[in-house]
Each structure stands twice: as structure tokens, then as C-alpha cells.
């Protein structure tokens, strides 16, 4: 269980070194993307068009930030992760179309995503759900925002972060998966509990 400090854009070899249980702090640029931004990124890729951000070695954060505008500038108030499950369907394709190296979220992702992470050399990191003020404290500034027509939570926010973490590597590029382990154990306990019910 090592600790790493990484700078964006992330290099494939650095990401492939990470193992489940490691903790990571990320500095540099991260991109928010939820349901609608995923859809739009895929649509652009299918049309052969470029998105307004560079996703080489990128970190995608599943977040719909709480922001406010002060003196003409956006400020992040609160920005914890959203449930990653909702992006299960679009993520394998996203990883095929864009060289994203890290996804940050909560709750874990599907087996198909785990496969895609392995194939593409990317990891899924967990940040404690709801720890939104702590997360916002690591955001230095909003670099820009794209696709505000999707609404504030669904827009593509470009955030400059410093030592964003601690992130827990929960699904690594070797097939390690903490959620899968915990889920397997829970299903085993469930069988026992159900058998003992009166």
C-alpha cells in the first residue's frame, strides 16, 4: 500500500504501477464529467470532432460541483464525487475514444469498466462520498467551464487541483478491484444470513 504523488497529464507507465489499496494525490488539471458530458464526448468522437479539452493522460472526476460566481469568477464551494455506476455504460467506450488515465468517483464501477481499465491502462480511484468540502479545499481554481447548456452539475468543469486526495486506488490496471472483493464477501455473508432467518 504505497503512496504516490502524480502530476497531470498522467503517464501510462505511472498509472500501470498503481495497485488497489495504494493512495494517490493528484496535482494539475482534472475534468468533471457526468452522464450528459459522457454522452456528448462520445457523440463528438463518433462524429470525428474534437472536444474543447485535451484528454491525453486525463483525469476524469465524476462530480457535479456546487459553485458560485464571485467578482466574475467561478469558485468551487463543495465538490465530492457522484455515484459512478451511472457512467458504467458509457465508460468502456469513453476509454476507447480518449486516452483517459484515471477516473475518480465513488461506489465503484462494473466488470466491463474493470476490463476496459485493464486493456487501456487506466485506474479507478475512490474518494469518500460526501466529503465535498474537503475535496473543494484542494481545488485551486476553475480554469474554465464548457457545455454550461447542460446545466451546472452536468457541465464540463476544468479544475486546477493541488494534492487532490487522498484517493484510494479501488480498481487498478491489473484487474484488482476492492469493490468486487467487498461485494463478494457481502454476498457470502448474505447467503449465511438468509439461511439463518426465522
Amino acid at each position: 500500500m504505497a503512496e504516490y504523488r502524480l502530476k497531470t497529464p498522467l503517464k501510462e507507465e505511472d498509472v500501470r504501477k498503481l495497485r488497489v489499496g495504494d493512495s494517490v494525490y493528484v496535482s494539475g488539471i482534472i475534468y468533471s464529467a457526468r452522464d450528459l458530458a459522457h454522452r456528448r464526448l462520445l457523440k463528438l468522437a463518433e462524429a470525428g470532432e474534437k472536444p474543447p479539452v485535451r484528454l491525453e493522460g486525463a483525469v476524469i472526476y465524476h462530480v457535479g460541483p456546487l459553485v458560485r460566481r464571485r467578482k466574475g469568477r467561478w469558485e468551487v464551494v463543495s465538490a465530492g464525487p457522484t455515484t459512478s455506476f451511472r457512467m458504467n455504460k458509457d465508460t468502456p467506450r469513453l476509454l476507447e475514444c480518449y486516452p483517459v488515465r484515471m477516473i475518480i468517483g465513488k461506489g465503484g464501477m462494473s466488470g466491463e469498466v474493470a476490463e476496459a481499465l485493464k486493456k487501456r491502462g487506466a485506474v479507478y480511484c475512490h474518494y469518500p462520498g460526501g466529503a465535498a468540502v474537503l475535496a473543494a479545499e484542494r481545488v485551486k481554481r476553475v480554469v474554465k467551464v464548457e457545455w454550461l447548456d447542460l446545466g451546472i452539475p452536468e457541465a464540463l468543469w476544468v479544475l486546477e487541483v493541488e494534492d487532490f486526495g487522498p484517493l484510494l486506488v479501488a480498481m487498478d490496471a491489473q484487474g484488482g478491484n476492492l469493490y468486487e472483493e467487498a461485494g463478494r464477501k457481502a454476498r457470502r455473508s448474505l447467503e449465511k444470513l438468509l439461511a439463518g432467518l426465522t
Binding site: 457535479g64 463543495s78 465530492g80 466529503a131 468540502v133
Partner: peptide
């Protein structure tokens, strides 16, 4: 979670973005 609760209270900010 506990640290976040304290941070939200002292900063007067919503403890979760949702």
C-alpha cells in the same frame, strides 16, 4: 466523513455538493 462535517461547519459551506 467526520473531518468533512467539521470543515463544512467552520467554513459555513454545504457539506455535500449534492
Amino acid at each position: 466523513i467526520l473531518e468533512n462535517i467539521t470543515a463544512a461547519e467552520s467554513a459555513g459551506k454545504p457539506l455535500c455538493q449534492d
